[in-house]
Design a protein around this nucleic acid. Sequence first.
RNA 1: GGGUUCGUAGCUCAGAUGGUUAGAGCGCAACAUUGACAUUGUUGAGGUCACAGGUUCGAGUCCUGUCGGACCCACCA
Length: 725
Amino acid sequence: MDTKDTSYNPQKYESEILKFWESKPYFKPEYKKGRKKTFTITLPPPNANANLHVGHMTGYTYQDIMGRYHRMIGDRVLLIPGKDHASIQTEVVFEKFLEKQGIKKRELGREEFYKRCLEFTINNANNAREQEKSIGLSADFSREKFTLDTDLTQTVYDTFKEMYEDNLIYRGKRIINYCPRCHTALADIDTEYKEEISSLYYIKYGELVIATTRPETVMADVAIAVNPKDKRYKHLIGKTIEIESIGGRKLLPVVASTKVDVKFGTGVLKVTPGHSKDDFEIAMENNLPIISIIDNNGRMTYEKYKGMKVKEAREATVKDLQALGLITKIEEIVHNTQICERCNSIIEPLISYQWFIKTQDLARKAIEALEQEKFSIHPKRQEKNYIRWLENLEDWCISRQLWWGQPIPVYYCEGKVTEINKNGDITEKVLGCGEITVSTVKITKCPKCGRKVVQDTDILDTWFSSSQWPYSCMGGIQSKDFKEFYPTNVMETGRDILFFWVARMVMMGIYKTGKVPFHDVYLHGLALDREGKKQSKSKGNGIDPQEIISKYGTDALRLSLISGNAPDQDFKLFDEKVRGFRNFINKVYNSSRYIILQIENLDEKDKKYIRENLKFTKESLIKSKMNKHIEDISKKMKLFEFGKAAFNIEQFYHHYYCDIYIEKTKGISNLEIKAELVFTLYQNLKLMHPFIPFITELIYRKLNGLNVLETQEEVLMYCEYPIIT
RNA sequence: GGGUUCGUAGCUCAGAUGGUUAGAGCGCAACAUUGACAUUGUUGAGGUCACAGGUUCGAGUCCUGUCGGACCCACCA
């Protein structure tokens, strides 16, 4: 720090301070010997497919605030960073990246695609790491993990095998959400709904009329369903009706189901279990057959429409139905179409063989854990959402027909084949002796008959790996770190991934370790733009954190992301706001500079006096206010009220410490008051350090260099947190 | 359909457990400042606390309803 500079220039100091922090293992829990209590956060690993955005920086700032605070109160702090391969997300991003160069994924082939995608992610991971460091994140980068690291995959495979042996993982033929563009099955949570105007066709079914938006699936109907309370059709329940349609005459049973909405269309539903989720369930309840007429490419398999895309087939069938005189009305309706969360393609519900996790028991335990207060969620109101989601959870489909990720550790004796015959029946046969082997290490021969085996071509849902992050990132449950640092203290993450991630980590953590992986969950809100809109790449309203850092400095950005914000509450981020905080940082610099100028030229004797008299004066103008402030901030730190703490810190420092206290001391010029100025500045620096580490570190080092502090610590984050005196 | 959340000065937001003239920052106006800081200080203008009822001696704060914005979950044949 150069006291000749009349204003603070973050550019001048930040990178040097970062280097200084990295010059010694300050961020490692081993740095301080003799500390007992651990404080651990396994940091949410960002997807290694793009630069970090403001959302990541928000999380890192909260995590770093906690980390620095806990070092100051004497804990052994470990923040474990990582990078996520993010299976489907990265695969889609990388596919687009390739397409820009005119390369198609399928032409490249699986192996080459994987190889290039790995390079791509490693590259992105390196960038992301530098960005994490730039925000001042005090994580132990020597422990950084990538979710495709060998030992991490090993943990994931061990869990898979264990769950398979416990009958919690099974291979099942079920209806799943299929994305015809990504060519993969998706879990419910991987899909979204989009409002769309579509045609509702009224079609004669014998004596009845049904309404459907999907006339192309009439050939796959196996029944007619009505609501049991609907008087209009009650008499038909249990009977069979004869219809004439595409494909000729057909007999369809009429079944009752409460899923049928009396008010929709005619109140009569065609049951197509091969291509509709609800219908599939109706079919299960009523023991109906299942017919499939659309394949994995979203193309028809039914005789005369074979090879057509769904949309074309819709037009063709409507024409044919009209020719038969069966369409009585066409209506425009607004309805929500299920789309792929990643590529926005329309989801096709299809029957196929996939791997599932039985979630009922896991979910129940995850609910109990919260009810028994084994952990808590901040803010508390999110606990209700967590419970409701788990209560309604269906089995979790964990297989994906993708290339980028962890292959499923399952081997089929001499391979397997899936067939759809002309009746639309899907069958799957394992060849050879029929043995299916789950193995955590690669095998080539069937353990039962010695024939060669073929590994499942699917990969695991990325969240199956992510949900195990709290222990997998430590090197698994046998590792030294696991024994020392698990369960962790806090899981700090965006409010939007409570279900995707947090709930699943609780389930998997309890299953694998018998413990909830963390004590507290802190959910931060999303950064919105000035108009209150969510930032997104497609809208182009994203704010680049690196730009803010170079314009206003990291401390100003950190305060902008935290100050005044409540958990789970979205907040607006815009230029003037950051500028205001930049001004505050400058205020911190200049007020400190003022105090330093008072003492800089003192002789050794006077400096010694200050060093030995770091306390309030007898008639202190600030003692009670300062003590009250320390108490207030300490309390808020413990209660996870970081936004309020940051706000109060700024208010107090600026409008009391500077505007009132320092001004009042200007008339006094004895050594006693100089000692108090240094003392109270030091206290304030410590309170502020978790939030604005750079400027506080800079001033701390200057004071320390002047030999007016009694500390031996090289860095502020190991100085003892202020207490009331 | 179920749920959550927000609506306080032009803008961004504070306003535990209901209690005197409703606060801060930015912006605006005026003034000041050669002695830490114009990335500053002081002062000022600016608010029917969305609306309507209710509980209370007393409501921005609690209850009910209405309007408006955001979000989540479920359904959408």
